[in-house]
Structure formats: C-alpha cells, structure tokens
Amino acid sequence: ETKVLKFGHDNKADPFENPAHACTAVFANIVEADTNGGIKVEVYPSNQLGTAAEHVQMVRDDVIQATLTSTGAIASYYPRIDVLNLPFAFDNNAATYEVFDGPFGAALAGDIETTLGDVVVLGFPDTGGFFEITNSKREIAKVEDFSGIRVRTMTLPSHQKIVQALGAEAYPLAWGEVYSGLQTGVIDGQMNPVPIISFSKFSEVQKYLTLTNHLFSPYTLMISKTFWDGLSDSEKQTLRYAAQSCVAASRGLSRIIEASDQGLAGLKDKMTITALSPEEREKMKQATQPVFEALVKESGDAKQLELLDQFKAEVSKANGSSYLQ
C-alpha cells in the first residue's frame, strides 16, 4: 500500500525563491518517481504546521515524517549543534559542501541520531549561504566600524557573543519586528544570508551590506525513525539519494539567487556593498573565535568539544583543498 511522507518546513512554497522549497520539491519528485508512487510525499511549507522547533517535535513523534530544521530550531533538542556557529570558519561555499558531505557531516548526523534516538538525519541542505551583516549607520570595512551599532540577533547566546566580540551591540528582536525595527531605527543592523536580506526587502531600510561571511548555518534534513524503520532497503536507498539531490538543489538555488537580480547584482543598486580585505577578516576572526570557543568550553560537554575539534580540522582541510585535485 502507499506510504505517505508528510514533509513540513518553515519557508515559502516557491521552489525558485527559497532553497528549502527547492530542496523539498526535488526530494518529493525523486522519491515519488523512483518508488513508482509507493511513497507519496506531501509538503507543508510556510510554517503551516507550526514553528520550526515544533516541526522537530512532530518528526520525533512521527506526526509528520520529515522536516528541514534550522540550527536555531534544533538547538533546544540538540545543544551541541552550536559548534556550527564557529565564526569566520569557512573560506568559501565550496568548503561548506566538503565539510557537510564528508566525515564531519556523517559524525554530526550520527550524534544527532544517537542523542535524539527517534530521528534519522539524511543531510544538511543550504539555507541560502553565509550570514552577512547589514546596517543603516555606516560602511563596515574594519572591525572598529562595528562600534556602537545595534545589531539584531536571534536569542542564541553564541550569536550574541559573536556580535559583541566584534564591538557591536547585540539585541534580540522577534523576527516580525525586524523590518519595522530597522526602518524606524530601533535597531541599526541585522545579519542573515543574502537571499533572506533580498526577499525581506531589507535594502529598503538598510544602506550598507558587508560581506562578512561570518557564519554558515545549514538546515538539518531529518526523518522520523518510526517511518524509516518501516521502509524496505531499496526505499531507504531511494530516500538517501533523493536527500543528496535535495541538498544539491538547495546549494544550486542559493548560488543562483546570489548571482541573480535577487542577489548581490540587484542589491548593489540599492546598497553599498563592502567585501572584507583578508587582513580585516583575519582580525575579526581573531576577535571572535576565542570568545566563541570559551563559550563552548564553559557551557558545553566533552562530546561537544570533540565535535568542535573535528569541525575545525575538517574545515581547515576543506579550506585548503582545491576542486578535482
């Protein structure tokens, strides 16, 4: 009989506008086609079923069978995910592919599965690339330029610490208040990947965009273990390679958005875009990484430190490697 896989996520239902829906659309298509209709995939986009954190709980309870969850949303269930917030870690997008498709991705997936006990992790799709910082006060090219700028962050201690270590002020603000907060000057700046900056129309209320590339925060694609255990081996295999294509699609769409009018090309007409010099980026890295690592040492456990070490090793390997060589 037909199995139904309900797949919920917190982004808009447009496969050409956001990486999450691109990923689910590709996943659904491959799964339905390659199981010859044996598994039907129903996608629930746009937070129809609740917040991102509720989606995690629903997958754990097998109420829905799959979700894409942000690192912020999974953090309350799996605090060790915070290691991914190591600031200024990656040199480029290609390095993120290598790390999350490689031994570190496998180790992280394995630890999430062991810790939660009721999910299977199939991959780490792109949420839209690196976090950049926008603000309305001044061009930020040097670390000193951050001084006195009020930046909105999520209520993640590591994000707040990173912003503060750069010399800016960190204030948590509900997502629904960010646009008007930026516009009226309640806050001066915020940080997000380029597609989110673009689709949230922040260019209307922010003058300066600095390509800090300081954080990379992927989704986690997770499946209910109850559902997984009821699949045949060939169905499991289908889900695994569908997930791989889903991850590829999310990356492809993120890069396309960045390159299109909805990305930097469009934003540069409305905002001053600043790329960091290697020296300034190194200064920011030196300012923030020790603060972050101290936070992990203070609040994390041994397993988290082990993951952090592995993450750093794999990132540095990926930063140094070159494609097809």
């Binding site: 009020r150 707040q160 503060q164 960190a170 204030y171 948590p172 509900a174």
Partner: peptide
C-alpha cells in the same frame, strides 16, 4: 536598557 544603559541584557525579551 536599549536606549540608556546599553547592557544588552539578553533576558527581558524571553
């Protein structure tokens, strides 16, 4: 805090 003290207290919102 936001306008006068600048302590960046993380808890009032939560």
């Amino acid at each position: 805090d936001r306008y006068l003290l600048h302590l960046q207290l993380p808890w009032p919102e939560v």
